[in-house]
Amino acid sequence: MTILAKPWLWSWLAAAAAFALILGLTGGRGAGELAYAALSFGAFAAIVGLGQMLVITLGPGNVDLSIPATMTLAATLALKAMGGEPGTAFAGLAIALGVGAAAGIANYALIFLLRLPPIIATLAASLVYQSLAIWSNRGLRIKPPEGLADFATGRFLGMPNVAWVGLALAIAVWVLLERAVAGRWLLATGQNLRAARLAGVPVELVRACTYVAVAMFAALTGYLLASFSGGAALNMGAEYLLMSIAVVVIGGSSIAGGNSNVPGVWGAALFMFLVVSMLNSYGAGAGARNVLTGAIIIAIVIAASTRRART
């Protein structure tokens, strides 16, 4: 009863079911490889998903649609600065995170100073970020430094390094939300902004930090993804727009805000990768794959909301 009431359980069950369906098709071969691939690709979705979860927790209307552009811009600038030279990995990381922080501050400035709805503000800003990336990239495809590429594609104790990064961030976010004063402030703000303000919560500080955090999570993902795939590409972030929102919703966080769910994000990230590979292994084309992915997301949102309505 108590374990069944945990909303994160469902995304993990769904991931396990998708995993089993694929293995059913292959007759059980390649289980290790599949799990490894799911952890590698799932990590990227999980990291952007954690950031998006924090923003969605801020309450209705809060969402960051500039995640793909921020990923691309951060990756492009970082790889350009590193120029493939060895020993520049940390400088590149600092640049990526700096780009993320700047994008987050810019997003929040638009929201706070111009009073734009976050959807409009982040979407408009993302056009600027994407243009900057195009302008600075000019069609170049710069390879990441070798050591960094090795790290991004490497493994430790049998698990991909990027998954370790994603796990560490998940634990950090979980501690923040469950134990830290700042996390309480975030959750209170998401439930009722006015009540939180009148209870002494510095709500604008909370909102600013959250928008900066999501952009930095996106920048880090861009940096890791570019290193993982051998260079930045202008469309590298495209699929992470829907992905970041889907993993939050499937993971069991409330779209209405004030309630977030860290383990669910990871389960949902694995599930999303496994669904796509399942459809691939059943021979579905790109079009059918997109339709089915969309249908699955809708089905899960409906299932999640009816479950909540009953309790």
Partner: peptide
């Protein structure tokens, strides 16, 4: 008496809401 940007260690004022749904209760908690 309070700020949306800063939380002092000791708040200067505390507020008790009358319109508790709008101004007071954090309903999920």
């Amino acid at each position: 008496q309070s700020s949306a940007w800063r939380a002092d260690r000791t708040a200067r004022a505390a507020f008790v809401a009358g319109d508790r749904q709008r101004d007071g209760v954090l309903p999920l908690w």
